[in-house]
Every structure is written in structure tokens, then in C-alpha cells.
Design a protein around this nucleic acid. Structure first.
Lengths: 195, 195
DNA sequence: CCTACCGATCGGTAGG
DNA sequence: CCTACCGATCGGTAGG
């Protein structure tokens, strides 16, 4: 099946791009991971950049869907609950496919300028969801007043760090990481409730 | 002066490595930034990797010195004060020379395996200082109990994110960033004092 | 998916 | 610091 082969290519490429970077990975490296000749890759893809583009777009889709779902499930709830859902969703996307997610996080700058601009907009829109929530929570008194752009950048990069060091099957389960990162993020922002 | 030219090379290279990555930057790109021929660079450096190596080492020196100074200045003080000093020092290193710091943060993986292992050790030792402080603070009751490796990873990558988006002369001063990031980090870990 | 191949660019050297 | 140059590798194409 054509789709399946494309996926294999993207999976192998994700893992190589993650380890060596896009520029540091050759078309022949990718082909070697599939046990085919370098030139044979072009039976399936139009260019090296197309592979990166496909990976980045699919990852962007996943982050957006996770945020949609988190916001849907917690709409109307207090800001700290909505934050928890957003964090949990984001961490889930990272740990479910670290290769893909880390390429999204780190290698999107290697895209050609037009494509870079396009996912740049999607990244901004995604980050804006976090800023908005932080602004709302600050105004509602649920959060300690914070600068929304700075606090969003702080949180998101803290979470995205997972893409750098997480290994499935390692000593830390995805669940344990999510639990701790939810706690840290919650405490960083949420107002203490004094009983 | 030989030292000065080396510095110019490293500064130009830092900025290019930051924007395009080490693998995505050619020796001729660096030379162009100095208005000399690509081959002329080799009158000053032995290899492209030597330039990366020099940048990474100097950045590592600065992070370690900042942590030494922070620990010296707050030794014997409560854990939350020591954390503040460590955060402030780390952020200061990042904002004082973003180019160099971001190469340290992101491009050290491009070093040859022997050198990568050597700064890997230094990075581990640096991260261990944070883990140790978090463990001590957790035990002393100054911090909400946290998993030291996870919490250290969370904090450090949150701070290191500055290397990605900070531009000197931008809308956010280094001082304002440091203040907000100190607050966020403090709240993420510190036990509330109930009056 | 393969073989054969291409022009461009890479990091780096020789010799001034 | 320059000119002239090198072998290796790069992304990609032609033609099966």
C-alpha cells in the first residue's frame, strides 16, 4: 500500500531528523533505514523537504486536535482545570510519537520560507490558546497574575523539553511524566486556595 | 590580534549555527560573515567542528561560573532563595550572549562522539546541581515534594527556551524575563507559606 | 524499486 | 588572507 510505505519513510525520517537534525540527515540515510537505494526514495516522495513537511504537518494536526479535545472537555470549567487538560493533551502528543513531535518542535525552521511561514502561523495560533487561557485565569483570579506571552513560552518549552529526552520504555512512564508536569505547571500558575 | 579574530569567527558562527544549525551552516557561510574567502578561515581554525567546540566550551564555562557564584552567594540560605539565585544566573548567561548559549543548548549534539561525551558529562554535572537543590528543598519542606530529575528537566528546559526566542533589544528586557521566570520557577517548586 | 549518472556544494589542503 | 584545487557527498533525474 502506498500510504503505508509513505508512513514508514516518515517514521524512519522522524527518528533520523530527531537524532541528527534535518540538515544533518541525507536522503541516503533515510533510504538505508528502509533498506533501499537512495534514489529509490524518489519513487515515493518528491523531495527531502516534502518528507519534513509531511511530518511537521501531521504533528501540528495532532497538537491542534489534542487542544480542541482538551478545551471541549473542560469548557466552562475553572482555568486551572482547563490548564491541566491542555498540559495533559500536549504531553500526550509528545509521548505518543516522540520522533514526530520532536521534529515538529525542533526542525520546522529547516522548511522553505513559504512553508515555514505557514506552520509558523499554526504555531502562533496554538500558543495563543495558552496565552488566552493564562490571561483569562489571571483576570478571574484563578491564576497568580502572569504575563501571558512569557508564561505561555515558559510552560510550552518546559513541556516540549520532553521531546528531547523522552525514550519510550525508559525508566519514566509517559503517565508519570504527565502527572509531574501537570503538577509543576499547575503550581507555576494557579493561585493557592487558602482553606 | 589572533584572539580577537577567533572571537569574531566564533561570534559569526554562533549566530549562524543558532539560525541554521551546525549542519546547515557551511564554512563559506561563516567566511562570508567575515568578508573573507571560505578557505581563508583555515588560517584561523583547524576545522569547522573546532569552532563549534570552542563556542560550546565557552558557554559551558559561563553556565558553570554563574552557578558557582549563585551557590556561593546563597550558601546556607533556604532552598527557595538558592533556587532563585540559580535561575537568575542561568537566565543571565542565556540573555548575555544568546547566540553562544543557544548553540550550547541546541547544537552540542553535532560534536564528534568524544567531544559530545565530554560536554555531556559537564551538562550532567550542571543538571545535577539543580537536582540536588530540588532534593534538598523537598526534604527540608521548603519545596513541595517533587521528583528531582523531572523537576530539574522541567525547569531547565523552560529556561533554555529563552535561547530560542529572545532577541536583545526586543520588547522584553532581559530583566523582565528573568523576573517572571524566577517567579514561575519559584512557584512551581516552593511550598506556600501559610501566614 | 534499481543502475547509472549529474551538477552543485561540502570541508579542507597546497602553496604562496 | 588569497587562488586554485581536491575527493567526497549532497539532492535529485533518466530510463528502465
Amino acid at each position: 500500500m502506498v500510504e503505508t510505505r509513505r508512513r514508514q519513510i516518515e517514521d524512519v525520517a522522524s527518528s533520523l531528523f530527531r537524532d541528527q537534525g534535518y540538515a544533518g540527515t541525507s536522503v541516503r540515510d533515510i533510504a538505508r533505514g528502509l533498506a533501499i537505494q537512495g534514489a529509490s526514495l524518489y519513487a515515493h516522495v518528491a523531495s527531502k523537504e516534502d518528507v519534513l513537511w509531511a511530518i511537521v504537518r501531521r504533528a501540528a494536526d495532532r497538537f491542534e486536535r489534542a487542544a480542541d479535545e482538551a478545551e471541549r472537555a473542560t469548557s466552562g470549567r475553572p482555568a486551572d482545570e482547563r490548564l491541566e487538560a491542555l498540559v495533559r493533551g500536549h504531553v500526550g502528543v509528545l509521548t505518543d510519537d516522540v520522533g514526530q513531535a520532536s521534529v515538529f518542535v525542533r526542525e520546522w525552521r529547516s522548511l522553505s520560507s513559504e512553508r515555514r511561514a505557514r506552520i509558523g502561523e499554526r504555531r502562533d495560533a496554538y500558543e495563543n490558546r495558552w496565552r488566552r487561557l493564562i490571561a483569562e485565569g489571571s483576570q478571574a483570579g484563578a491564576f497568580v497574575p502572569a504575563d501571558p506571552p512569557l508564561a505561555a513560552a515558559y510552560l510550552l518549552t518546559a513541556l516540549n523539553g520532553i521531546a528531547t529526552w523522552y525514550r519510550p520504555g525508559g525508566p519514566l512512564s509517559a503517565r508519570a511524566i504527565a502527572a509531574e508536569f501537570v503538577n509543576l505547571s499547575h503550581r507555576a500558575l494557579a493561585q493557592e486556595r487558602h482553606p
